[in-house]
Design a protein around this nucleic acid. Structure first.
Lengths: 346, 346
DNA sequence: TTGAAAGCGCTAACAT
DNA sequence: ATGTTAGCGCTTTCAA
């Protein structure tokens, strides 16, 4: 590809016509005779002509690519979102440029800048746990870059958003723990900055309150880096375990936190659920074969990616400025397994 | 970004100098006075000038992006490779465009075509399980597109490659099963087309032979779609279980096959390792907490991505044609856990 | 129905 | 040290 690529000029020369005629013929313009079109199409095929997307982009002022910012691909959730994004983007002619924040605000800003030097037509973003201010996105949005938030959204920008029903998932998970006889329920979650943390916290708190359990600040542990740093999860767990009134159950708020807590409990040789019950947000397909099988809150990753991408491309391709925005809330699912089994009476 | 982006002309007009002077000043050319450079730089900052990468690309004939083709991000291995790729690519100024084949040859061809319309400077690829012929890559390679293979490589193209030591990993895994008292060891693997299958098969076979066990064709099951289709894994397992001389251990050859077999054995209520021992290639961090803990062969995904990207960028940026190619073989690691415990005497 | 010319934003050879 | 010009490949008026 690097050299000697066939251009429109080559076809023009070959056929003894002008480049503009070729260009028009290739896009089936009505102002070109059927005969010429046939000749051009045939010649293009013969020479294996491929349009140069950079020239097209420069000319048209778009890139036919979508920038994606996720926390990390190294978990169960985001790859599923990616599959959903793909399922729409390719069929509508868009490339995907993916970046990971690894839960760092700095990396997020850098990635967004990298992406938006006109190299993308729109942005699909789930902000990092560190992200509090979003000025880096606001200015882009004001300049007209279409943005759709998914998963971790910001209410500081008025645009389309796609989230899971984090509130309900958290509510149901907590409710289930209570009904299974657990009273001292801890919550290990991500940074309080981000939307999913707030939503999940609300569900957790409401379930407690409705059951006349006073939410206990000491039972709520935040991992400011979303558990990217294993140490912060260890610290959270240690602090919980050292409390005088040690919790008997934990509700964890993300893929990475859930699996890490699981590993740590095993390492500490704490029996699940006897010593500590567990239920958490995660999409791992291994929940069934874990020892004991893991109760989970599942998020519809694929559907979220699909929906967000449909929204984004509609935004990109809209003729007139869009002013009505939607926040789609997709259902979470709670799977009850053995890690949150009915508490045995002592 | 979409409109009113600041261009070099705007700066030129603002400062009353020529566009080319601005261009040169911006790249700190020696033929521009220090004073002018200062003015330009300052003005660029003031107007928030961002070069248009498409124009640069069109001009220079490169895109500063790397195309990536993997089977699927929806497992443990490839995201780790991605992290390795990132760790090199960004710091050397390259964007990443990622595509998944989902183990389909057709999708692979389509993705490669999509990527290579001059939109990428080089290609990092791990072929799909369906991929047998690689003419779609050969022609690109001949035209001068730098390609580096990783994980699943092809010997039909002479270029840099990065693989894990699949042979050794498979050999050691099988050897370990034998030493733990298992004699009837099955192997469930991917399509025989791809390199990793052949390499792993060799390790498996040699270990058997060295222990005077005759390899048994009926014990080797191929999943032509790499287990993308769960049914084919189920079929493989069923066929193994229905044999008169049913195997007492399985060695599985990829992330997805390993975890799926694990799930299936559980569903069938077969005790591991009593009814069936198991060891398999997978990078899942959950191996320790699975019931029972899972013996695994681990591949250095991060390092593979890193190495492959270094090789690719060196290729891309090489002044002179490269004719000496290297195949890097990175070590696998075998982790022995309970799923392949010493066989109990009956 | 076709062609000529201008221009997207940037760069580089070649003036000045 | 700075400016002029041409051109990357393609599209799109506008003219023929």
């Amino acid at each position: 590809m690097n050299f000697e690529a066939v251009t429109i000029k080559d076809i023009a020369r070959e056929l003894g016509i002008s480049a503009s005629a070729v260009s028009k013929a290739l896009k089936d313009s009505h102002e070109i005779s059927a005969k010429t079109k046939l000749l051009v199409l045939d010649c293009a095929r013969r020479l294996n002509y491929q349009p140069n997307p950079m020239a097209q982009s420069l000319k048209r002022g778009n890139s036919k690519s979508i920038g994606i910012v996720v926390a990390s691909l190294d978990n169960q959730f985001f790859p599923q979102v990616m599959n959903g994004i793909e399922s729409v983007a390719y069929s509508r002619g868009y490339n995907l440029i993916i970046t990971q924040t690894h839960e760092s605000f700095e990396l997020e800003v850098q990635n967004v800048r990298h992406l938006t030097n006109r190299a993308i037509d729109g942005l699909l973003i789930s902000v990092s746990t560190e992200t509090d201010a979003i000025d880096h996105l606001k200015s882009l949005h004001q300049k007209g870059l279409p943005i759709v938030f998914f998963d971790r959204v910001s209410d500081e920008i008025d645009t389309h958003k796609v989230i899971a029903d984090n509130f309900k998932g958290a509510y149901e998970a907590t409710q289930h723990l209570i009904q299974s006889g657990y009273k001292n329920i801890a919550h290990i979650t991500s940074s309080p900055n981000i939307s999913i943390t707030k939503e999940r916290l609300k569900g957790y708190t409401l379930a407690l309150q409705q059951n006349n359990i006073q939410p206990n600040e000491a039972y709520i542990k935040y991992c400011l880096h979303g558990g990217k740093d294993q140490q912060e999860i260890e610290n959270a767990l240690t602090e919980l375990l050292q409390q005088p009134n040690r919790p008997d159950a934990i509700f964890t708020a993300s893929d990475r936190i859930t699996t890490t807590i699981l590993l740590l409990l095993h390492k500490l040789k704490l029996a699940i659920p006897q010593d500590m019950a567990l239920i958490g947000f995660t999409n791992t397909p291994l929940a069934d074969v874990i020892n004991p099988s893991l109760s989970t809150v599942y998020q519809p990753g694929f559907e979220m990616g699909k929906k967000a991408t449909e929204m984004l491309i509609d935004l990109i391709e809209s003729k007139r400025p869009v002013t009505e925005f939607e926040t789609a809330v997709l259902p979470t699912q709670v799977f009850i397994r053995d890690s949150s089994q009915q508490k045995k009476k002592l």
